[in-house]
Amino acid sequence: MTTTSWLNPLAALVLAPLLPGIINRTKAFFAGRQGQPLLQGYYDLAKLLQKGAVYSRTTSWIFRAGPVVGLAAVLVALVLLPLGGAAAPLNFTGDLILLAYLLGLMRFFTVIAALDTGSAFEGMGASREVQFSVLAEPALLLSLAALGRAGQIGSGSRIEHLSNFLSLSWTYSNLSALAWMRNGTILLLVAGALLIVLLAENSRIPVDDPNTHLELTMIHEVMVLDHGGPDLAMILYGAALKLWVFCALLAGVLIPVRSSYWWLNAGAVIGGIFILGVVIGVIESSMARLRLLRVPQLLTGAGVLSILAFALVLWRQYGTLD
């Protein structure tokens, strides 16, 4: 644990609300609009934090706890998150499992807070959220398992210290340009799977449309309909951080800068994260939201990509699929 590594979560804390701004500006550019200011996310947070709140009589303490637990969970997840070659403050065997389950905790509390309102619309959103996570979760974990192997194959490095084995920071530190040259196909497949998981977990097009005006068709937005004031600020900030986490996981694969300078590694990945924001904006501008019944097929596609990646890992490692 080095002091510089704490700059990773710090960067996320400061820069994450910029990410939705970049996506929105990109979308505005494609639509030929001026668009909202780049810093709109910060303005929204500042405004919401100054407001009071209105609670439904139906709700209980669960509704109030939802945003708090959700934000706390994603904040802890930041502590485990490497930025490419820049290791996370905390890294240990199996930290990727903890990361995935912390996001699971966030989801669980968002969902029960939604159910606490007794509204049919929020129930609908909650139901969809848990449905899609069932398919996204295995794809995410298998992608990361394949990634852990892919960086190591052919590099001649063996797992010397089991204490580092399977930590996210260890996995990402291996994904150099050399790894791309050796195992580019695997990394590309994993990147594809991670991109789909990113879009689904953060409720972006083509899974969910954050700008839709119909509560019936929303997923994430409809779950937080009844929240307002500081609670909504926590939710918005938590969502931005969650988007940051997934973008960092993907950008860490795509940006193979693994120098001996911490600032260069982290800086490159942060640049990558913002480019991903533009990419998401382009995706959202160029396609429509899928019908809800089609979404499971897209997510199954992510699963298939991760299975393919894993099969390729085995092929490369043992020369057989056994």
Binding site: A53, S56, A73
Partner: peptide
């Protein structure tokens, strides 16, 4: 995680103290 939850809950109640907190029906 637990410390952060406690901290955030504290911040939340501190922010809402003295502000208008109303009860109403669920938005349908």
């Amino acid at each position: 995680l637990l410390v952060l939850i406690a901290l955030l809950a504290m911040i939340r109640s501190r922010l809402l103290a003295g502000r208008k907190v109303e009860l109403s029906g669920t938005w349908d």
